[in-house]
Amino acid sequence: MAKMKTMILTGTAALLIGGSAQAFEPESDQPIKLMQADWTSMLVHTEILNIVLSTYGYTVEKVIADDSARYPGFESGDLTIALETWQTTQDKAFNASVGTGKVLDMGELGPHAREDWWYPAYMAELCPGLPDWTALKSCAEAFAAPETAPKGRYLGAPVAWGGFDEERIQALDLPFEVVHAGTDAAMFAELKSAYERKAPIMLWVYEPHWAPSVFEGAFVEFPPYEDACYADPAWGLNPNAAHDCGKPQGWIKKMAWAEGEKIWPCAYDIVRKFTMDGDEVGKLVYEVDVNGRSVEDVAMEWATANEAKWREWSACAAN
């Protein structure tokens, strides 16, 4: 077999750096299974972590899993590490899973998620009071569709994501009707459609995402969220209803299979220290989604440019 070995190196970077990491001996050659869902930032982050861990000799597998179907996998060890868990959609499930003791909260990744009602910039002309939410009371009709008229049409996230928009509309007495999109993609497809035609639209948008960097617009400013707003009807403008405020901003957390801590303590240390800057993430995602470059290229470029940074995370492997 050795005769047949043909070395093909993936890039010059591999030549330069490859040798120096050989000194470290990973704690175990069991594969570390990195979960990736299908949105871009997670793909890029996971690939960066893959490059880092592989460079130190860990056996790494990337496993594709559905965002919300991941928990049983983490509880049983089918999945080892996920770099992105969004509070905005996964809060309850994540906490429940951590509560079982089988899953570790590995800290925040860095960027913060924001989500709320959002409108394209050209709608500001039709509804002059925006972004203040009170403006919606008077110009709802500008956002209407035939089946909701005279009420405005608000395109909410998939039902499964929750979000309390029906409750918000009632609590703040907004003349709007919620229509739920089926998926993330379907939600933004409508935005794209409306944006191209400069047609009215009001919908749920979240960041970090490529859409706000491609489409110009703004979030509606609701009364800022506090825990009490959701929990206590007496709080806020409407004394009889909860949810009379905007949506909470959310963390993005890393999670891991608890037992892995004993198997790869150093790798877990690296993951805990793995953080990204929000603006930087936006740029990486833009490179992939808008400029159409491959995830691997973008991740390798980042890893080459930021070697000092990830070497620092990997102090335990540097000996």
Binding site: M4, K5, T6, M7, I8, L9, T10, A13, A14, I17, G18, G19, A21, Q22, N50, I51, V52, L53, S54, T55, G57, V60, A303
Partner: peptide, 11 residues
């Protein structure tokens, strides 16, 4: 291997 020390043995 993978990452910075990925090598291809057979295509």
């Amino acid at each position: 291997g993978a990452g910075f020390n990925k090598t291809q043995i057979l295509p």
